[in-house]
Simulated scan of single mutants.
Amino acid sequence: MIALWDTTATDVAAALHSERQSSGGTSGLALNLVVIVDEKDEREAEAALTVASQQHPCRLLIVLRRDLERDEPRLDAEIVVGGRLGPCEAIVMRMHGPLSQHAESVVMPLLAPDVPVVTCWLVPPPQVTGADPLGAFAERRITYAALAADPVEALRVRACDYTPGDTDISWTRITYWRSLIASAFDTATAPAKSVTITASAADPSAALLAGWLGSRLGVTPTIQDTEVERNSEHLPGIGGVSFTLENGDEIAIDRDRAGTTVLRRTGFPDRTQTINGRTLGELLAEELRHLDPDQPYQAALGTCTGEDRLCGADVVAR
């Protein structure tokens, strides 16, 4: 580990090269991962990024903004290659004063060449992520609406500024729900007539689930606002989903606080399985597997926010 105080991007690049040489470097980098973190959440973010980097060796550039009112710019950096943050080349950058508003001037010279760039905001994101200096050069941009003061309103902002390549961790939280619902419809003999989601109306994952179901089934789901108990911060506040089919059959999936789900279908025995909450690192690792535009997310976001331009006929399921 190398610590540099009151340094420059040039000195950081030189120190990174030296550390790579002495430690043997990290071969086969899959991507550049730029992460903007609030200083109070640094420990949790580093734990999550360690999990993600174990599945996706990367050059990890962590940006922490400090002392925004400070008159003089200053950069402090910590370089870790193959250390506590996993099999990655990590640079933790604390940017003070005016420099914090121009983080791209430090980040861009430190990007590994010839591999994709993913930018992730673990803070409230800028108004237009695709035009933000830290998002404009990225193939993928990951936000987390659940961190916003008004998560559902945050989704509307994301819909208004949507650029192909955008996604949100609130969407990743419902991967298991989408998989379970899709498998439940393997035996359906008629289209859905109505859909009811039991969930917290303030949960952005519930809104995105409603958007996904609406875009796939052509039915507008009803969200039955209920505060759902959760055993994990990153488990969506969804307690159940029920469907009535046009032939009168019913499909229902209910989940209790422990994560046990029961699938009930007309004419079939009940099926039980567990949906556990995943850590932030596991959610990030899933998102990093997809470097192409996430079209189902685009359709779900457009449907749940009423942004029609995102709901084109060419949007297909992944």
Rank of each mutant, 00 (worst) to 15 (best):
E19K: 12
R20G: 07
R20I: 09
Q21Y: 02
S23T: 15
G24K: 11
G24F: 11
G25K: 07
G25W: 03
G25R: 01
T26I: 15
T26K: 12
T26R: 14
S27N: 08
S27E: 09
L29C: 12
L29M: 11
L29P: 10
A30D: 14
A30Q: 14
A30L: 12
L31W: 02
N32T: 12
L33F: 14
L33N: 12
L33C: 13
L33G: 11
V35H: 05
V35D: 03
V35R: 04
D38F: 03
D38W: 04
E39N: 09
E39R: 09
E39D: 10
K40W: 06
E42A: 13
E42P: 00
R43I: 04
A45V: 07
E46H: 15
E46N: 12
A47K: 15
A48R: 00
A48T: 02
V51F: 08
V51G: 05
A52W: 00
A52Q: 03
A52E: 07
S53A: 15
S53W: 02
S53K: 09
S53Q: 05
Q54W: 04
Q54N: 10
Q54V: 08
Q54I: 02
Q55V: 01
Q55F: 04
Q55A: 14
H56R: 08
P57Y: 05
P57C: 09
C58S: 14
C58M: 15
R59T: 09
R59G: 13
R59P: 07
R59E: 09
L60E: 10
L60M: 01
L60Q: 13
L61E: 11
L61Q: 04
I62R: 09
I62K: 00
V63D: 03
V63E: 04
R65G: 08
